[in-house]
């Protein structure tokens, strides 16, 4: 690791003022991506601002008909939450499949959403449910928030403080994990809501998490596995690497979408 200065903060206001004062700072939440990134010298921040001292950034509460999850809530806490299981069971199940138990004990939803790894799971749930990303200065709809690979609508220093998920009539998440890394080679979150069906895909596209609108339209009138059986995506738009060509990922999305619809019922 390169050297950096480290400090803790007790409030989001402190975090912002320190962020603004430093040359090239970065926020530290659970660190399950950031610390390995620093170890590989893929990042060289001047300052780490550790957010874990901000007490009011942890917890899960009802919000409207859904749930609001504070940014520093761990994946393990989301996976084990009776409230999340009751409101959006697929979200709890998704959190319980991130990484491994030790990563889930430390990694946070805010960190995952701010990082927007193209193979991360949470972006699929946010986009699939039409979540609202709450920051220290505004609220951003998921459709406007995820803008590309590791890219979000967050401004420099803007801090995710919570994610608000509306309830849905039926939800399911299906992923095909890479056998070694366990990151999604494709992951599909399907939500049936009063406003229609949403299908969000992570892990596969060269543009990051996206909504598969053709599947949404097909499922709107016929929420069955058969409705998406004839649909296909362009493999050229998908990630091609040593783990699989784009055509393979495009095919996986179709299969996983069908399975998710069947699982959501």
């Amino acid at each position: 690791m390169y050297t950096f200065d480290y400090q803790t903060v007790a409030s989001t206001a402190d975090a912002k003022s320190i962020y603004d004062a430093k040359e090239d700072p970065t926020y530290l939440a659970g660190g399950m991506t950031l610390i390995p990134t620093l170890k590989q010298r893929l990042a060289n921040p001047t300052d780490l601002i550790d957010l874990k001292g901000i007490g009011d950034l942890v917890g899960i509460a009802e919000a409207g008909d859904g749930v609001e999850i504070k940014a520093l809530t761990t994946h393990a806490a989301v996976a084990g939450s009776d409230l999340v299981k009751a409101k959006t069971p697929a979200l709890a199940a998704l959190a319980g499949e991130i990484g491994d138990p030790q990563v889930r004990n430390r990694g946070t939803i805010g960190g995952s959403v701010a990082n927007n790894d193209p193979s991360a799971d949470y972006p699929a749930a946010c986009l699939g449910l039409g979540a609202t990303i709450v920051t220290d200065r505004r609220e951003i709809g998921a459709d406007d928030y995820f803008t590309g690979l590791f890219e979000t609508a967050l401004e420099p220093g803007e801090l995710v403080v919570a994610v608000r998920f509306p309830a849905a009539q039926a939800t399911a998440y299906q992923k095909f994990p890479n056998p070694a890394s366990r990151y999604a080679m494709a992951g599909v979150f399907v939500a049936k809501t009063a406003d229609g069906v949403r299908v969000a895909v992570t892990g596969a596209s060269q543009s990051g998490v996206f909504r598969w609108t053709a599947a949404e339209e097909a499922l709107a009138g016929n929420f069955t596995k058969d409705a998406v059986a004839g649909l296909s995506l362009d493999g050229d738009d998908m990630i091609s690497d040593i783990h699989g060509p784009g055509d393979y990922r495009a095919h996986l999305i179709g299969v996983l979408t069908g399975r998710a619809v069947a699982a959501a019922g």
Binding site: Y6, L28, G31, M32, I35, P36, K39, L48, D50, K52, A76, D100, P101, Q102, V103, N105, R106, S181
Partner: peptide, 27 residues
């Protein structure tokens, strides 16, 4: 492995198992 995959470094932090190769001592 030193890349958060293998778990040889697992310790308990405040009662929960975590990978000590993937967190800072100051944390």
């Amino acid at each position: 492995c030193d890349t958060s995959q293998c778990g040889a470094c697992v310790v308990h932090v405040n009662g929960s198992s975590m990978k000590s190769c993937s967190m800072l001592a100051v944390e």
